[in-house]
Amino acid sequence: MARRKGLVINDEQMQMIDGVLTKLQRVAGSAFVALISTSGQPITTAPADVDADTLSLAALAAGSFAATRQLAEVLNEREFSLLFHEGQESNLHVMQVTEQILLLITFGRDTQVGRVRLYTTRAVEVLKPLFEDAEDSDEGGARTIDTDYSREAGAAIDDWFPGESDK
């Protein structure tokens, strides 16, 4: 049994990814754009200092998208590849980039959905190969999570929440 590889994103890949997201946010008239993993972890946003709880957003959006895929299966549909939430002030559009990556884009009522979909689809075409490279390569991760890291993290966990540990 082979375990699926983790996702390791290096500086060069992240620069390219951030470039694509920044452009997408501008041309699509979006409030902000975010990339998350399908397991619910945030990767990056444009703008970088977005005023939102990205941790909760990533967990909920990934859960919502995963449920949507299962709905497709129940309905014998090959896939629902995108998810759209319409609000009173803002909308959220979620689209799959790769097996492990989702793209989230928020926009206001004054932005046309068609415009967002068009630019998002184009951005996904650019992002897809970048993430496929990141999924293929695990070397950076192996170098980063070494025995030194493991030892120091273990010591940090020992000292974590000191008042609670003796219960």
Binding site: R4, L7, V8, N10, D11, M14, S39, T144
Partner: peptide, 15 residues
């Protein structure tokens, strides 16, 4: 399966 973002110097684990 951890997500390692070397650019942002971040590691996330899921439990």
């Amino acid at each position: 399966m951890a997500l390692i973002n070397l650019a942002a110097r971040e590691i996330n684990y899921k439990i």
